[in-house]
């Protein structure tokens, strides 16, 4: 679409002044270029959309992942139109206007130095493409509630559902652990999430900056110490495992900081949660009370309680008929020191 107009501009303008210079008849460069560009860009776009596109990462495990895949494919289609247009033009120019072909000497002067029409078309077209890309990207960011990116402690694009499952992701050198406030604040080293559910990942760190990248979920959020970085995602019906990697350089074992999570059915999830909560009870009572961030100096023996204002936590009562366990914990978490340095 873009190069259509651009290519038109190329040929129409300088045709006049150069017509008399060449001995042989000047071919219709525009028609040739347009034909080649049309075929190549259309064929490439069709192949991409129908053959490659459905397999583009991050897949379709969540609404956000599907959105990212759609975005990528749309951008690819537009990019291919531009890239193929420029490349075809370059290739054509190299062949058609190479010196070794012995064509007529180029004609300089004002006609070859600028062309208001071509310049206007070019600038208008690129501006329109950019504005379209901006509008498309913004819509695709806002509609899927932040598109799976970390929105910081005060998210502005939130799910309207009142059944959002909060899961805390705690990053430390060089491991992720997960706390489930709805299951008594238990901490696990495996990430299990239910299908077909809104999930709020609360990502934080207890030492340096990490980044929680749940690849197939289309989630990426930096883990900053003392910051609660929230990313929303809605799982589709697709079950299976997904990869979790640290995506921000966090020290020498950064490359080894990865694990795998699992999407299970709601029933399986409930069973797993209750079972793990019981099994972990002895450990959980030694953890600091659940809080959105963990910093040695901020957590007293009474702890910082979770501030759930501004979002609706996943209610087990409503969904599964269970009540969150009330617990009193005294010991601060001993392993969470960040700077035991001075």
């Amino acid at each position: 679409m873009s190069d259509d107009i651009e290519s038109q501009g190329w040929t129409r303008a300088p045709a006049g002044p150069t017509a008399g210079t060449g001995a042989r008849r000047e071919p219709h460069h525009f028609r040739r270029l347009f034909a080649m560009w049309f075929v190549v860009s259309l064929a490439g776009d069709l192949v991409w959309w129908f053959v490659v596109g459905p397999h583009v990462p991050p897949g379709t495990m969540t609404t956000q992942a599907r959105g990212a895949q759609f975005d990528f494919n749309v951008l690819f289609l537009a990019s291919w139109v531009v890239v193929s247009g420029v490349c075809i033009y370059l290739g054509y120019a190299f062949y058609q206007w190479r010196a070794s072909r012995g064509g007529p000497d180029p004609v300089g002067g004002p006609a070859a130095s600028s062309n208001v029409r071509v310049q206007t078309i070019w600038i208008t077209t690129t501006t329109l493409i950019v504005i379209a890309a901006f509008i498309f990207g913004t819509v695709q960011l806002i509609l899927p509630q932040g598109a799976g990116g970390g929105e910081g402690p005060d998210p502005i694009w939130k799910p309207t559902s009142d059944k959002v499952l909060p899961i805390q992701v705690i990053a430390q050198q060089w491991k992720f652990t997960y706390r489930y406030p709805t299951f008594g604040g238990m901490e696990t080293s495996t990430l299990v999430i239910p299908a077909d559910t809104w999930i709020a990942f609360h990502v934080t760190s207890i030492d340096v900056i990490h980044d929680f990248w749940a690849y197939q979920l289309g989630v990426k959020a930096d883990a900053n110490p003392d910051v609660d970085d929230v990313a929303y995602v809605h799982t589709s019906g697709q079950l299976g495992s997904f990869t979790v990697r640290c995506d921000e350089l966090c020290g020498i074992w950064h490359g080894a900081m990865f694990d795998y999570g699992k999407v299970v059915t709601k029933t399986q999830f409930m069973a797993w949660g209750s079972r793990t909560e019981r099994a972990n009870a002895d450990n959980t009572k030694y953890l600091p009370p659940f809080a959105w961030t963990y910093v040695p100096t901020a957590n007293t023996t009474t702890g910082v309680t979770a501030d759930t204002s501004g979002q609706a936590p996943y209610s087990r009562i409503e969904k599964y008929g269970a009540t969150p366990a009330k617990k009193t914990v005294t010991s601060p978490k001993t392993t969470s020191s960040t700077f035991t340095t001075t």
């Binding site: 956000q64 990212a68 960011l141 598109a147 990248w213």
Partner: peptide, 10 residues
């Protein structure tokens, strides 16, 4: 494009 950047960032 932020949604795509969620995947490709870093």
């Amino acid at each position: 494009d932020v949604p795509v950047d969620v995947t490709v960032h870093g």
